[in-house]
């Protein structure tokens, strides 16, 4: 039964991941007063890319060809680690969130060295920034997960989320700040607006887009798909925060879809109304998330009476 639920969850997640970029595009077009594209437009773009051939620069080596595959594979595997609807993910063990984080890390690492492999100055710059931002955002993720582990006394995704009770004023605060930080982490991981503008056409200010300048055809397509899935992964984690444990499975599914769509809308709105940070200001904004995460951690110390104040 539970396994089935997980299968349904993964299938739902995959379907939603196709719609996710479409929803964002629609929201952005609506707020800008433009005619929105079809919700499936990103899918058509990817299909078009699949039909094209792949071209490799003569300066690149095997690493460059391997990188997109490893990246996509790591993200797809990470998708299997998250619990859906209170059931375990395909893989579930103690400390799986650490494994999850570094699985994503491997994909990112391959992308970075793949970008370096081209020998292009722009791609090296993009890789540099990507590595730096990932470095800065990592403490925030682990502090949030560590705080939850402290509250619930569990160290796997499944138990973490199923033991999370919204019972005190403080845990509401923790949850809301944690969700805020997670949304921001998603934006950094996916190189979206406050940190990086995917629509920009100036290589000097690009982060992620400049890394994939040399990728084409099949490689570019799977990179796009991987980044959709990344959105869904973080959306699912946020959904797990918000969806109560003890309700019927159908409501859970409805809520799950609702949270994901709402998340996409929020991302779309954020992107419509926010300007991109100056490149030089990015590190401090990302670091501020870690700082907020530390305050969440402090709060959990108080909740769990590790820190006794009167």
């Amino acid at each position: 039964m539970l396994f089935d639920m997980t299968a349904i969850g993964i299938a739902l997640a995959l379907v939603l991941s196709i719609l996710f970029p479409g929803i964002i595009a629609i929201v952005k077009a609506k707020t800008a007063g433009r005619k929105p594209p079809s919700i499936l437009q990103p899918l058509y773009d990817v299909i078009r890319l699949f039909r094209k051939g792949t071209i490799y620069s003569s300066t690149t080596s095997i690493i460059f060809q391997l990188a997109p595959l490893v990246y996509a594979a790591s993200v797809a595997t990470a998708l299997l680690f998250i619990p859906y609807f209170g059931g375990p993910g395909i893989f579930s063990f103690d400390g799986d969130f650490v494994f999850f984080a570094y699985l994503l890390g491997i994909g990112k690492f391959m992308m970075i060295i793949g970008a370096m492999d081209t020998g292009s100055g722009f791609e090296g710059m993009g890789a540099n920034r990507e590595a730096f931002y990932s470095l800065l955002i990592e403490p925030a993720f682990f502090l949030i997960m560590g705080s939850l582990a402290l509250v619930t006394n569990h160290v796997s995704f499944l138990e973490l989320f199923s033991a999370l009770h919204l019972n005190t004023h403080l845990s509401y605060l923790v949850i809301s700040v944690a969700v805020f930080v997670l949304v921001y982490i998603t934006m950094v991981e996916n190189n979206r607006l406050p940190v990086d503008d995917p629509r920009t056409h100036l290589e000097l200010t690009m982060v992620h887009e400049v890394m994939v300048l040399d990728n084409s055809g099949f490689d570019l397509a799977i990179i796009h798909i991987a980044s959709w899935m990344k959105f869904i992964i973080f959306g699912t984690i946020i959904a797990n925060f918000l969806i109560p444990v003890l309700i019927s499975i159908y409501i859970k599914i409805a809520l799950f879809v609702g949270v994901q769509v709402a998340f996409a809308v929020v991302v779309g709105l954020l992107e419509s109304f926010r300007a991109r940070n100056k490149i030089a200001k990015n590190p401090q904004w990302i670091l501020a998330m870690s700082s907020l995460a530390i305050i969440v951690f402090l709060t959990t110390l108080i909740i769990t009476s590790k820190l006794i104040l009167n």
């Binding site: 870690s290 530390i294 305050i295 104040l309």
Partner: peptide
Amino acid sequence: FYSIVITTFLILGSFLLSSYVNIPKLHTR
């Protein structure tokens, strides 16, 4: 960038310090 680091440690430090303060009638939080 460094200010954020310093501020965070100021907050963390003052909370940790306060948990050791043991003065009756004082609300350490």
